[in-house]
Design a protein around this nucleic acid. Structure first.
Length: 751
DNA sequence: ATACCACTTGCCTGC
DNA sequence: CAAGTGGTAT
């Protein structure tokens, strides 16, 4: 029965079998953490814990699906009652049940980022604020981080710290916008992504009976990728586990890469503080990668200061060294990567599925796609503009949303004059103003315009016929399955005809995409795993799609995606491209050490995706904003242990200034760079663009610092009486030196 | 009300 | 380079 546990090593088994009490599993990359979670759930089920008492939170829907399948295989029973899914989908479900206690109807809409920004844009306009200063995106991220820290609109407006911050950014009205935004979402019976967590917290906080219900229902809580949870998520699980304390979190602080959307690494670093009885298990053996890859990853991550100690090791083969590709331009880089993939495939008879190309930004995919097409390499792109973000799809979805929740203001705006019905901005503005003046949902005005304002008869008729149509859709949505309703709506709304009548290539494409959407609803309805097949269920699933959900591995193709999207995945052959300063690390991440460390963790994630072979590439010039700009190799490349990188082979391209060998030697580049530096050092002390000294005021005793000439050393003493501060530094290579801090260019060295 | 064109703006990452 | 905006002609 329980013999499946033999598949695990000692540490893993400990993690899988010690099911009671709070547990923290620190799991290095490739150490089998998903496996432990899977086996732990299987173990619980073996112990006759009712499946519906287990909640397991994953980072993507795909991970949840796969884990469920593996569990079913292990225990041989159906795991349908298991509450397994992403934070957002699980808590959206709870809010559908009990959100009425907060005044939401169970058919609430989930606003995506575009909806949120569009709403903010109209609020900013209504308040007559300067849209140069009040950028919807900037306001949105303020609101988002407020919600993720559980700051209500009211608390936000009363807090002087937020006010000062917004005032400094010349956006003093941000708090007011937040308040109006929240009101408008509520009136539209809509929640944004952050609300799904925020409102769950409010629900649990203000309605103890409901919290009590769920606390007693879920006896076991398991959370994957815990390093990427935010405060709001953490508080939910803390509340839920308060009674039974059976909370098991699994994560790797070295792979925390979502701070920009509120993830707080302190959740994992401080977990012990909240659970004094905590049992901590470290998984340090890597089963995924070669020794060279593991070592390279380790050599990089030691440069981060903020981390838990762990030593990831592997007993796998040494493997190939890390290859470095140096290219002239981004398009050459793409071509060299394509060539390399092609060669490797032919050389070893590998499927394209074995290869992944990872980049920092989605914009980088363009050049790569072109190169792949030219080299006749099949590829699939994960992320980027997803199917559901396409204009024509959003057009249809707006109607589907209206059918489920006609209060949905953003859906009204999108659908009311599309296809064209002669309802332009003028009318719409009047409607919006009336809805605000009477404090009713926009829908109420649209449905009965005469009650609220004066409009030409013709316009009133158009509005009324639109409303009648939506109401008919609404009735259909209640009675029929998602596919039937979606087909009806596509036809009756006139959108299908509109796309069909468009004879351009683009129009044809759109028409096909709409058909594709209808296929998706059909598949949704036909899928036996889906218990509920209504349109509202379909929309719920669509709005909470996570990156990678749409990918199918049926076709043999190279996978291309951002490093963020690659989290949790692995490939035999990985190419990480665009290893350049300002791109990776991103230019926006150079300011603070925290940001830079996050970029480094991101690179760590990229490296550790590779099982057998890792190739890194960079270009000397790259197109940006439509023109070619010079680039420098990423500082991260210099942080890798040089002996792990593939070395220059003198037999090939000897002596030549420009190598014809496509895989040119990074070491040589590094050498050239060093030589150049030394020359400059002799004449002008420090003119190294790369060497950015830290503010000398930050340097303190016992710190490790780096001097461009003397190298790395330890600060032994600082004489603060001396003007400009004098410091005694013991350099590893040249011994003691006394330097005037305000003159010496020193960089703080974190190790 | 709408269609089209010149002009500006910005490329992180994503539930 | 490409999406979005604002102005103008129809």
């Amino acid at each position: 029965m329980a013999d499946f546990l033999n598949d695990l090593n000692d540490k893993q088994r400990e993690g899988a079998t010690q099911t009671e009490g709070p547990t923290l599993i620190i799991a290095g990359a490739g150490s089998g953490k998903t496996r432990v979670l899977t086996y732990r759930v299987a173990q619980l089920m073996q112990q006759d814990v009712d499946t519906f008492r287990i909640m397991c939170l994953t980072f993507t829907n795909k991970a949840a699906r796969e884990m469920r399948e593996r569990i079913e295989k292990l225990v041989g029973t159906n795991a349908r009652d298991l509450w397994m899914g992403t934070f957002h989908s699980i808590f959206a479900r709870i809010l559908r049940f009990d959100g009425n206690r907060l005044g939401y109807e169970s058919n609430f809409t989930i606003y995506d980022v575009e909806d949120s920004k569009s709403l903010l844009k109209s609020i900013i306009k209504e308040l007559n604020l300067d849209d140069k200063l009040y950028k919807p995106g900037a306001i949105f991220s303020r609101i988002s981080s407020a919600k993720n820290s559980l700051i209500s609109p009211q608390a936000y407006q009363e807090d002087p710290v937020f006010y000062e911050h917004d005032l400094a950014a010349r956006r003093p009205e941000t708090g007011k916008i937040y308040q109006i935004y929240a009101n408008r979402c509520f009136r539209a019976n809509a929640m944004d992504f952050d609300d799904l967590l925020y409102q769950t917290n409010v629900l649990f906080r203000d309605h103890p009976d409901i919290l009590h219900k769920y606390q007693h229902r879920f006896r076991y809580l398991l959370i994957d990728e815990f390093q990427d949870t935010n405060i709001s998520q953490y508080l939910i699980v803390k509340r839920l586990s308060a009674v039974h304390q059976n909370i098991c979190v699994v994560g790797d602080d070295a792979q925390s890469i979502y701070a920009f959307r509120g993830a707080d690494i302190r959740n994992i670093l401080n977990f012990e503080r909240d659970y004094p009885d905590l049992k901590t298990i470290k998984l340090e053996q890597n089963y995924r990668s070669t020794q060279n890859i593991v070592k390279a990853a380790n050599s990089l991550i030691v440069h981060n200061r903020n981390q838990l100690h762990k030593e990831v090791w592997t007993s796998n083969a040494e493997g190939e060294k890390i290859a470095i590709i140096k290219a002239g331009t981004d398009s050459e880089e793409a071509r060299l990567v394509a060539t390399s993939i092609f060669e490797q495939r032919n050389l070893h008879g590998l499927p394209f599925n074995d290869f992944a190309v990872l980049y920092r930004t989605n914009a980088q995919s363009r050049a790569l796609e072109e190169a792949m097409r030219r080299a006749n390499i099949r590829y699939r792109i994960i992320g980027g503009l997803s199917f559901y973000q396409r204009k024509e799809i959003k057009d249809i979805i707006a109607y589907l949303r209206m059918a489920v929740n006609p209060q949905d203001e953003e859906a009204i705006k999108r659908s009311i004059n599309n296809p064209k019905r002669g309802l332009g901005n003028t009318t719409m503005n009047k409607v919006l103003i009336a809805s605000r003046a009477h404090d009713v949902a926009v829908w109420e005005v649209v449905r009965a315009p005469d009650k609220f304002l004066k409009l030409p008869t013709r316009t009133v008729n158009v509005l009324e016929s639109y409303a009648t149509m939506i109401e008919a859709f609404g009735i259909a949505a209640k009675e029929k399955d998602a596919y039937t309703v979606a087909s009806l709506i596509a036809k009756e709304s006139g959108l299908v005809k509109m796309f069909f009548d468009d004879d351009t290539l683009e129009g044809k494409n759109r028409y096909e995409n709409v058909q594709e959407l209808l296929n998706a609803t059909r598949e949704f309805v036909d899928n036996p795993d889906n218990e509920n097949k209504k349109l509202s269920d379909f929309l719920q699933e669509v709005s909470l799609i996570t990156s990678g959900d749409e990918a199918s591995e049926d076709e043999d193709a190279v996978t291309m995606m951002t490093i963020h999207a690659a989290k949790g995945l692995e490939f035999p052959h990985v190419y990480a491209v665009g290893m350049e300063e300002e791109l990776f690390p991103s230019s926006r991440m150079l300011e603070s050490r925290e940001d830079l460390e996050e970029e480094r963790r991101l690179f760590y994630v990229a490296i550790t995706r590779a099982k057998q072979r890792l190739t890194l590439s960079y270009a000397l010039q790259r197109y940006m904003y439509g023109n070619l700009r010079p680039c420098e190799p990423s500082r991260f490349l210099y942080e890798l242990e040089p002996t792990l990188l593939n070395t220059y082979q003198p037999g090939r391209a000897s002596g030549a200034a420009v190598s014809r060998d496509p895989i040119t030697n990074f070491i040589r580049h590094q050498q050239e760079r060093k030589n150049k530096q030394n020359v400059t050092d002799a004449t002008k002390p420090i003119q190294n663009k790369h060497f950015q000294p830290d503010d000398y005021k930050e340097i303190e005793e016992d710190m490790r610092v780096e001097h461009p000439k003397f190298g790395i050393g330890t600060v032994k003493m600082i004489d603060r009486n001396h003007t400009g501060r004098r410091a005694l530094i013991d350099f590893d290579k040249v011994g003691d030196k006394t330097l005037i801090l305000s003159f010496a260019k020193l960089r703080i060295h974190y190790e």
